[in-house]
Amino acid sequence: MAVTDYLRKRFMPHIWCPGCGHGIIMRALLSAVEKLGLDKNDIVMASGIGCSARMLGYVDAHTMHTLHGRALAFATGVKMARPDLTVVVPMGDGDALAIGGNHFIHAARRNIDMTAIVMNNSTYGMTGGQYSPTTGCGEYGTTAPYGTVVQPFDTVELASAAGASFIARTTTYHAREMARILADAIRHPGFSVVEVLTQCPTYYGRKNAKGDAVEMMEGFRDCAVPVGPLDDSGHATVTIDPEAVDAPIPIGVFRKEVRAEYCDAYRRQVIEPAEAAAAASAAASAAAGGEQ
């Protein structure tokens, strides 16, 4: 199949602004899905609300456009009912880390097998450029006309502390690598977090004098510093020379560890013993009934 065969072409062109990076992420995701040869019927995508969440309108798979911040909860329900399906959850930085922060850390803690894509444009694009949990300290938004006064979340560190077993970061400039990372994340049997730094030229770019889409992507290119290879325990070493790049963005795969997966563990520890106990008690009462 061609990549565009996974698109609902009748809804194109999409609603995203000219140069919005969200379309580059959708393309990389569909390339990954195509490379893995996944059947549309085996893919479930859930999203919340935001420009990023609108991706679901265009992907020709099973799609659920749900509540702001709650996509991971819906996705968890689907995955527990049908662990055989591939579940992908694209989220904005506000969707994933502000209103949905609790769902995010607990999905990571459970290590449930799904891929969370954090489409981080450092702003709330859909509602008009308010600052988000990833807006840099001192940067501007419509709700921060004097600049924010708080430190941003580091998505990779947050996911790592919460227990995600696959963690990566990339940018829209690195589209080819993004497709490779997403394929790896989808194949990984656990909770995968892929943060993609993406441009919102309309709000974040304009408010912070970052230039147009091309200049914002050049910024990603110039600041990106690849992390080292994974060691035997599945952790990458991050060595950054602060002299070399002004505001370095470490990119690459930070963690890839195989650990007990939630649906699997739940089946072994709860469903199978419960079913065995129910079968034993049915057999016992059948035997007792037979004796009468």
């Binding site: 062109p13 999409h14 995203w16 990076g21 969200h22 379309g23 580059i24 393309r27 829209t172 589209a175």
Partner: peptide
């Protein structure tokens, strides 16, 4: 294919 991969609008093939 750099153009195809980076076009946000699937407009280049």
């Amino acid at each position: 294919r750099e153009c195809e991969l980076r076009c946000p609008d699937f407009a280049v093939t």
